[in-house]
């Protein structure tokens, strides 16, 4: 099986989507804290939404590693439906700035103090002429368990 990331294309692909500043997430024990990630898509590009309109397209996917907090369901915004010359069906995409929210529950027995949660954001970007290879962005969020 081929494993392709078009290695030299990493720089341009990585620049298609960037993550805004991540603030420390305050997480009271036994309660839920909502984490909002702000994402910026390079002008002229879009990334597929979490539910693209074609099985072959690569969805936006955020997964969290096992850590001190228990992640709930990831909430994606409503996608934009972009008509393209490529398909009869509009593309389900995100462009510009958008936010992805995850609710985390801090277990009542969690150790208070600083910690971190880590995850991966998988995305694939295109413009109206070309597509960049799929990429995975590592995400690290500092947490203060209280």
């Amino acid at each position: 099986m081929a494993a392709t990331q078009f290695s030299r294309g990493q720089s341009s692909a990585a620049a298609a989507l960037s993550l805004g500043e991540v603030q420390t997430l305050g997480a009271p024990r036994g309660q839920t804290a909502r984490l909002t990630l702000t994402l910026y898509v390079r002008a002229g590009f879009h990334v597929n939404s979490n539910k693209p309109n074609d099985d072959y397209l690569i969805p936006l996917r955020l997964t969290w590693d096992k850590g001190p907090l228990e992640p709930g369901e990831v909430e994606f915004p409503e996608p934009q439906l972009e008509k393209s010359g490529f398909s009869d069906k509009p593309l389900s995409v995100y462009s510009g700035t958008f936010h992805v929210v995850t609710a985390f529950r801090a277990p009542a027995e969690a150790m208070p103090g600083p910690a971190a949660i880590t995850g991966k954001l998988r995305y694939q970007a295109c413009n109206n002429r070309e597509c960049l290879p799929p990429r995975t962005m590592d995400i690290r969020v500092p947490v203060e368990i209280r």
């Binding site: 494993a3 392709t4 078009f6 030299r8």
Partner: peptide
């Protein structure tokens, strides 16, 4: 044919498709 990174690198990395 099924490509791989080596093939892409031969052609300068193939930064975008098509």
């Amino acid at each position: 044919l099924l490509g791989d990174d080596h093939t892409a690198e031969l052609y300068g990395g193939v930064e975008a498709l098509p």
